[in-house]
Design a protein around this nucleic acid. Sequence first.
RNA 1: GCCGGGGUGGCGGAACGGCAGACGCGGCGGACUUAAAAUCCGCUUCCCCUCGCGGGAGUGCGGGUUCGAUCCCCGCCCCCGGCACCA
Length: 831
Amino acid sequence: MSVEQRADNPYNLRYDPRALDRKWQARWEADGLYEANSNDSRPKWFALTMFPYTSGDLHVGHWYAEAPADAHARYMRMRGYNVLHPMGFDAFGLPAENAAIQNGIHPQTWTLDNVERMRAQLKTIGASYDWRREVVTCMPDYYKWNQYFFLKLYEKGLAYRAMAPVNWCEKDRTTLAREQVMPDGTCERCGTAVYQRDLEQWFFRITDYADELLDNSRIDWPERINLMQTNWIGRSEGAELSFALDVPGVDADEIRVFTTRPDTAYGVTFMVLAPEHPLVPALTTPEQRADVEAYIAQARRLTEIERLSGDKEKTGVPLGTYCVNRLNGRKVALWIADYALATYGTGAVMGVPAHDTRDFEFATKYGIPIETVIAPPDYDGAPLGEAYLDPGVMVNSGPFSGMPNEDGKAAVAAHVAENGWGGPTVSYRMRDWLVSRQRYWGTPIPIVYCAACGTVPVPEDQLPVLLPEDADFRPTGESPLKSHDRFRFTTCPQCGNVEAERETDTMDTFVDSAWYQFRYTSPDAGADRAFDPAQLAKWAPVDLYTGGAEHAVMHLLYARFFTKALRDLGLLTFDEPFTRLFNQGVILGEDHEKMSKSRGNVVNPDEQTAVLGADAVRAYLMFVGPWDQGGAWSTQGIRGIPRWFSRLWELGAVRNRSEGPSAPSDIAADLQRAAHRTVQKATEDVEAFQFNTMIAALMTLTNTLSRVEADNPDAACSPEWRSTYDTLLLLLAPIAPHLAEELWEMTGRPYSIHQQAWPDYDPELTKSEEITLVVQVDGKVRDRLTAAADITEDDARAAALSSDKIRAALNGADPARVIYVPGRLLNLVTR
RNA sequence: GCCGGGGUGGCGGAACGGCAGACGCGGCGGACUUAAAAUCCGCUUCCCCUCGCGGGAGUGCGGGUUCGAUCCCCGCCCCCGGCACCA
């Protein structure tokens, strides 16, 4: 295994890392070393890393997600846990179709080829995955259960079909969930500007779970992610208010608005409806119709980008009709304006220009009256120069005048409720999850439309509804399945009508990843069930989930929703899928920029592994910085890792010498202390995912062993040195599993190092008998004294005062105060 | 604009309110070598000096608390991420 000279050995490694990788990966696999068995009495630990999309090549970013996660899983295994660490592939999705369209390869061929290549690449990491549990989401045995859950949700009223204005990406030719539209109104996937279309689509009723999703008390997640979800859900408390309509020829007798400021309701001077509001056509007078229709047409043409741009000037058109503010009987003009959103609240806004910046801007532009109903400090009745948003006393508000507006919110809402004009309510920013996609490479929605029976769910025993392999999947704006007659036309499962039609849209691929974590628990479930309840009970929920923060309001929110919905369906018994979440940072290119092909700064992990071996790439990624902060790849910087490994290898040769007598007591004590300190540091660091400082501690211990060997070769044959070296290998095992296993084998200790117990440490043995006592005068370090660790304040003071440097610094002054930090520092204060 | 997370040597980064810069990279000097690579040893924050003693400054900027602040508080600046007409 050792190599003195290899032609392709630019780092002059002392061993052949690729041979080590091959040797041990084959052995571990043959031995089933990382297979998790449910009939194991040790406590379980379900360690999951977000599975990769089958894009075709494993990026160094994947390694950055997977290698440290594997190190932690290996640590937990050594800690005595029965660890389940699975891997799989997110295999449905548009890139497969796009690649197929461009290269003429079938999406399935493209995807399964990629799975094979990526699986091989993943294996080179040397991670401790239990591959028997692999999940590939495009397989019928898997997506059958997407369909099953869809039907269960449908039965429960949690899946429904509705006509709605939805986000449409013209490039990808499909609708998108709101979560998949970026803040700037572009498609999350391809960056194309998204616009709104009215389409009949399937939704999951995630909003039913809004309040439960706001509850973070059962999850240990980064505060940042919790906050992002909280903001996304956007709960706001307020009131719904009914404004009376009395327009000849119009059936509706009210317009309802949602407001968070019922206390300002006496200041309503106009009413804004969203252009899409259903009452708009009826409420438009003949004189205004042309203007209103033009405005609506123009608003519909706007992309999300234009519509969402915050500093856009407010525009609107009056409908020519009026409603009545029931609180004060005031007649209020109706307008449409695109700053009212059809999809939030009731799609209508009461205009209170005095106390809302948007309404103020609008009213100023169109000459609408502005009436103050919350008095600013020193209010003298003069017109406001801008909207007044702060607290104050209510004025011009009928019976509520004189009341602090903060009290007025509840008081007005209660008053409104008493009169049957609305009342307190809660509104959410989050919308239901749009799951229909007009694309081929996804799970068919298991629904049949029958002229006689209406919407008919496909019976469970007819699942899966297979995705036909021979579809023409080029994008047309309609699902490719729509032009596949053998798929589309079917018999109604209910009445036998032979002219029934299948739903031809497929599901959002986030459905696949909303429950995949549970599938891993049941490798033998196959087509018989989604997961085995006993296995699920054994392993779920996931104890530690790691992955990128970009999934905060998509995958992670959907997975939580799915878990709660499945719980309510009686399919599982817990509330949250992922007990603990950790987000790793992003690995950047050599130039400190995001890696991208166009920048040419992409690091290929395969090339690095071929030269340095998996361990060096793993260890470097962990060493580059704190895992949650990411870091930049450096071809210069990684050189330190193979150097360290080579020194470990050289020390392995020292370990191979025959054992000699005990080391001199001072060396033995130093070695013992160093070992215990390193175990403590490594343990604390790995628990906190601080692999960079953990590795630094292992390097320091390596240096200590080297130093002893260099200074006193006999001491390096001592039992103390040898056991310290063995401890170092145990600590190394999660970081560099192949090298540690090889060196462990060389010690003659029993296979496998990965089945050994993590070493313990004794806090008492980490302490040193002697310390460096820092002596300060007025807070400035003036001397450093060597002292016994338990030196008393009086002794420390005496020692300090006998130091020439301290006496010089004191310059004859007497310390007025002495600060003593035991075992660390003495500060003599002269002031 | 609002909400998070950050700003520390030439570089990546360490530091329970207590020796700033662990560990590593790079650089410089030396050893080994015919030579180079590799390896090993030493030095490496900046400035000053009667350059071996020492002294001063220093963790984005300005204040504050404290015997003592990279760390806590207040006010700014810059970078990264999220949200942003949500009534």
